[in-house]
Design a protein around this nucleic acid. Structure first.
Lengths: 141, 141
DNA sequence: CTCGAATGTAACAGAAGCTGTTGCTTTTGC
DNA sequence: GCAAAAGCAACAGCTTCTGTTACATTCGAG
């Protein structure tokens, strides 16, 4: 499958929200954000809906509404973003149960689960090293 | 999408090949391997075909043929397996080009590419710490 | 209190990928 | 030459992703 781009969309939206905030615009509509990402406003609302559920952004409804950061951009890491939008594990186990009469089939699942978790943890730790502020500042540099 | 299970299938096959080798069977058919994984023999041939292209297994055709390890199990890491079967990046960039008139849209792609590469490298390094022998021994322990 | 702007959300289409299956071709040892 | 097994192509069913339309909901402004 083509890998999904949700983390990218969400990180883009957050960086843009932070830049707008620095320019004096606290609130952006999904249309505003979609224009920068070059996608559909519904895609943005879905993505920012995930982030809102995780507390990373706030959404206001009604006239003059829109999205704003839920906490300082220095306190939002890419790990937060990944956890908010990416429920799928990086590596999957067997779709159907392996043959339990084979020693390998019997014992492999917990072993791989452990190893996958370990690798995934290092991946998460790497994402946790970068905040939305870091991303924006590297963009502007 | 449901994450793919190719690394799991390949690792299972390699561990089973190594166990069979220790028991005196150098060569297993795709049917033999499929019986342990509990899947179709064609799935196994596709997976082991990837591993063969990477030099991790050898395939012999014709009567009495089958698959055997291409090098010692102590010299095959899960990273080798991942590289052989998993061409997709862990995180994808935008599907369509962002708006280049926005500062964020203009600068975000190389930044995210760098950060994603960094995180992916730590993931790979974690996979590289484990060999097929390690996996098999943890299974048998 | 009404209006209008914007979010929330459901439904659907198109494309892509994965697994699994069948059937056929190719190879090769005996 | 035969038989066994890999190689490979094609297809079905399922799921997921993006994108789109349409509509319901919310809420500030006047």
């Amino acid at each position: 499958m083509a890998a999904n781009s949700r983390v990218t969309i969400a990180a883009h939206a957050l960086a843009w929200l932070e830049l707008a905030r620095r320019r004096g615009r606290e609130v952006l509509t999904s249309e505003d954000v979609a224009a920068s990402i070059n996608t559909n406003a519904v895609i943005v609302r879905r993505s920012l809906g995930d982030l809102q559920r995780a507390g990373l952004v706030r959404a206001r409804r009604g006239n003059g509404a829109g999205f704003s950061l839920g906490r300082p951009a220095t306190e939002i890491t890419l790990l937060d973003v990944w956890l908010a939008v990416s429920p799928e594990p990086l590596l999957a186990l067997h779709h159907s149960e392996p043959n339990l009469e084979c020693p390998v089939g019997r014992g492999i699942r917990p072993v791989l689960t452990d190893l996958y978790d370990e690798a995934t943890d290092t991946f998460r730790a790497a994402l946790a090293r970068w905040t939305v502020t870091d991303v924006l500042e590297r963009i502007l540099a």
